[in-house]
Amino acid sequence: MDDRDLLRYSRHLLLDEIGIEGQEKLLAATALVIGCGGLGSAALPYLAAAGVGRLLIADHDTVSDTNLQRQVVFTEADLERPKADAAAERLRALNSRIEVQALNECLSENRLRELAAEADIVLDCSDNFATRQAVNKACVATATPLVSGAAVRFSGQLALFRPDLPDAPCYGCLFEGENADDGACALFGVFSPLVGVVGASQAVLALNTLMGIGNVSHRQLSVYDALDGSWQRFALAKNPACPVCGVRHSEEK
């Protein structure tokens, strides 16, 4: 870090848990963020502002009027623009000293695995179950920590998965089958600040994991209710029969 970095990140450096060592870990880290919608809009600015050195942001959608109710990384001037490009431009303006790469593409299974292997952590900010399954498989295959978030109606979900640690559950252990979707906000609606709470919480888990601070369990699911502002936490266990990370699958790889 140079003098400008020392000044920029001074409020981090004052924290005993972070200090220079923790900030240098962030500056050297790569985070892959899948989805620049509501969750991504909340998580990405904090990752950039905190100094994560390299951000890979993937989204093949374009900005529409319906997004502006909650996807605060965009403005009306971004309508019809690719989300990844518009978000990357905003993040570079926020922190020009980090690398931001926009991936305006629909990621194949092989491409997802390739990108996950490049990353120190992955944030799943997508809005559909099929993508969450695919991201989880890529993270298990590459042993990359995954922060998973979801939000619909007034309810949000948050979990940290650590396939890099022994006997850790994965997203597939929690949600089995092809029809475990929680529903799209386009059908059921979503409370605007809900995505901010969950997305910012994803950033917290990602930054803590990258720096190795805090004591967040990778064996729990946190559920947020925006109607009363409460969090509930449920214990997670590894499923030996999980089709993604179970014993049989691990032996076959």
Rank of each mutant, 00 (worst) to 15 (best):
V33Y: 07
A235L: 11
V100I: 01
L227R: 13
S217E: 04
S250D: 10
E89M: 13
L26M: 00
S230W: 01
N239V: 07
D182K: 12
G40H: 02
Q232R: 12
T30Q: 03
A43D: 06
A141Y: 03
G53Q: 01
E176L: 15
I98G: 02
G199N: 01
P169S: 05
M1F: 11
V204W: 15
A31D: 06
D181T: 14
A49F: 09
A186C: 11
T142K: 08
V147C: 02
A28C: 03
Q23Y: 07
V204M: 15
L112D: 06
E251M: 11
A88R: 07
I57S: 10
A184D: 14
L158R: 02
V244S: 14
D167P: 08
P163S: 00
V198S: 02
L112T: 07
N110Q: 11
E76C: 14
N110Y: 07
I213G: 06
V122G: 02
L79S: 12
A31S: 09
V197L: 05
S222N: 11
R248W: 11
S217N: 01
A116K: 04
S192F: 00
E114W: 09
R8K: 13
I57F: 10
V244F: 07
A48V: 05
L187I: 15
L210E: 03
E24K: 15
Y224P: 00
F188S: 12
F74L: 05
P45W: 06
